[in-house]
Design a protein around this nucleic acid. Structure first.
Length: 580
RNA sequence: CGGGGUAUGGCGCAGUUUGGUAGCGCGCUUCGUUCGGGACGAAGAGGCCCUCGGUUCGAAUCCGAGUACCCCGACCA
């Protein structure tokens, strides 16, 4: 491709809308442009990279016996009513009507449509297992689109669905996909970490998220310094060393604490650490109120709490509910004498002695609170949010905190959708059984953003060889110089003939401009031809990733580049797949 | 949906407080001089100042309504 022909509108200045590095760079390097909030047009360079990511995914999915299909994006409402997600998905779904008033949605995901397909096509255990996947646009009317392509309303996703006859089959496919994902992301040059996660609203019972480590990531994770344990903080377990037990129990006493509402204020007022306090948080949903008890220096994990009481969602109670249940305004809730709600305590609370808590009255707290003696929770279960510095459940290591971009997720769905939509098969005995499903997603467009987030410097993007829109850019210092033009045109021809993806910067620009653009776009290999080296029939090769620069004879440029590209792509392959 | 902010040429911004009919930098076009890390000079093109309504002799500027976009929170690949 000649640069003069290429639509690669690089920007010197950062558009005001961009916040994080990947967003800024994707706009600046001319990979994409915004069409509306969370909706983007992909320009030639961006689309080439996207296609490369898709190609890698296809290879790995096919290698794992996946079969690609193309599913409708415009989907009938009936199917979503069957799974009950027309309402459950709610506002986040783009809904529309046809001219006859029939309702449709733009698919935010494809469980319904694929299950509907499979229920009519699969009858026998002989047809299982079945792995189908698609790479397509998905639509979610996000509450808040953000960070460019990272959280868009239209985005490209790969989803693979597995159908098995039993749990063993599902387990096998689950781990097959897990390992396929490790390969996909490794080949994309992305540093990812699989973490245990909460299954959330999609349903199912086991899931790992693949997190691309990045400061800009929206997810918080912890991982162990010693073992392989890693989890989303929504789900993470941890062990916390309990204080020494004295066995000397004080009596329960009320103290006056005028206008003291927060743990910090109380600690200061009484001269006691937050870890001596029992924090009582009230949560509710439409049919219950729950009091959650954690130590003062801990945080309630509302997802764990919701799981503990067996509901999908709980939110912090409002002032009115708090007053109704505790008889006091916010800030004075405590477990002693609390009635009218379920009390859930974290195990660490049960180990406390002579604790401090709210007194369920205005300006009153209690001291000498001893769990078990002064109150009895309805349930004792882990509901605290794990924090960096906690001990790992393995008992050996310490949890380390990090942020990540969720680029993929593998899920054991079980029978949620096959049940809802009636997808069954007959086994050897002629018995009808529900299909056991798994689903495995990769955010394709998000992966591109994550790669840029991880692979850039002050000058621009540093594409991994496997994803670079073009491998090589040839830069003549002055294209109007006849001798340079001749050399560079020939070089371009030779590189192209050798099957190398190459751009020739034939623009009438000063060298500095071309270098800046080359760095910004992130071509892995730059070949410069100018008077300095031309007299010796040489060219200069510069590597974007390291800044390394060397001069070689013109005659060796093609083989040198070819070899370098081959080796770079191979280096990104995980060991198990090399030389496949 | 709650809270905060912005809207002026392709991009980044000033002008709005104190109404008088729009300006700067970058980019773009042409010519010349340049040519190894975003050159210089000269001459140009390009703007219903987000929309609608109001106040006024006169509105980018004041008032009202609406829309879009961005940031912070709950949702999620």
């Amino acid at each position: 491709m000649r640069m003069s022909m290429l639509l690669a509108p690089t920007l010197r200045e950062v558009p005001a809308e961009a916040e994080i590095a990947s967003h800024k760079l994707m706009l600046r390097a001319g990979l994409m442009r915004k069409a509306a909030a969370g909706i983007y047009t992909y320009l030639p360079l961006g689309y080439r990279t996207l296609q490369k990511i898709e190609a890698i995914i296809r290879e790995e999915m096919n290698a794992a016996d996946g079969q690609e299909v193309l599913l409708p994006i415009l989907q009938p409402a009936e199917l979503w009513h069957e799974s009950n997600r027309w309402d459950d998905y709610g506002e986040e779904m783009f809904k529309l009507k046809d001219r006859n008033g029939r309702q449709f949605c733009l698919g935010p995901t494809h469980e319904e449509i694929i299950t509907a397909l499979v229920r009519t096509e699969i009858r026998s255990y002989r047809q299982l297992p079945l792995l189908l996947y698609q790479i397509q646009n998905k639509y979610r009317d996000e509450i808040r689109p953000r960070f460019g392509i990272m959280r868009g309303r239209e985005f490209i996703m790969k989803d693979l669905y597995s159908f098995d006859r039993d749990a063993q089959g599902l387990d096998k496919n689950y781990w097959k996909m897990y390992h396929a994902y490790e390969r996909v992301f490794a080949r994309c040059g992305l540093k990812t970490r699989p973490v245990e996660a909460d299954p959330g609203a999609i349903g199912g019972n086991m899931t790992h998220e693949f997190m691309a480590l990045a400061e800009a990531g929206e997810a918080e994770i912890v991982y162990c310094s010693h073992c392989d344990y890693a989890a989303n903080v929504e789900k993470a377990q941890s062990v916390i060393s309990s204080g020494k037990k004295t066995g000397v129990l004080e009596g329960l006493a009320k103290v006056s604490t005028p206008n003291i509402r927060t743990v910090e204020e109380l600690g200061e007022f009484l001269g006691r650490p937050a870890s001596d306090m029992i924090k009582t948080m009230l949560y509710h949903n439409s049919d219950m109120v729950v009091a959650a008890l954690v130590r003062g220096d801990h945080a309630v994990n509302d997802i764990k709490l919701a799981r503990a009481v067996g509901v999908m969602e709980l939110e912090l109670a409002d002032q009115a509910t708090i007053e109704e249940v505790t008889g006091a305004p916010m800030g004075f809730a405590g477990p002693v004498g609390l009635k009218g709600c379920r009390i859930i305590a974290d195990p660490t609370v049960m180990e406390m002695e002579n604790a401090i808590s709210g007194g369920n009255a205005v300006d009153v707290h209690m001291t000498g609170v001893n769990p078990g003696r002064d109150f009895k929770p309805d349930l004792v279960i882990d509901i605290r949010t794990a924090q960096p510095g906690d001990s790992c459940p393995c008992g050996q290591g310490t949890l380390i905190g990090a942020r990540g971009i969720e680029v993929g997720q593998v899920f054991k769905l079980g029978t949620k959708y096959s049940q809802a939509l009636g997808a069954t098969f007959l086994d050897e005995a002629g018995e009808e059984n529900l299909l056991i499903m798994g689903c495995y997603g990769i955010g394709v467009t998000r992966t591109m953003a994550a790669v840029v987030e991880q692979c850039h410097d002050d000058d621009g993007i540093i594409w991994p060889m496997s994803l670079a829109p073009y491998h090589v850019i040839v830069v003549p210092i002055n294209y109007r110089d006849e001798s340079q033009k001749a050399v560079v045109d020939a070089l371009y021809e030779d590189l192209t003939m050798a099957g190398i993806e190459v751009v020739l910067d034939d623009r009438n620009e000063r060298p500095g401009v071309k270098f800046k653009d080359a760095d910004l776009i992130g071509f892995p290999i730059r070949i410069t031809v100018g008077p300095r080296t031309l007299e010796n029939k040489e060219a200069e090769v510069r590597l974007r990733s390291t800044g390394e620069e060397y001069v070689i004879p013109l005659s060796e440029v093609v083989t040198n580049a070819k070899e370098r590209i081959r080796r770079a792509i191979e280096a990104e392959l995980p060991d198990s797949r090399r030389g496949r």
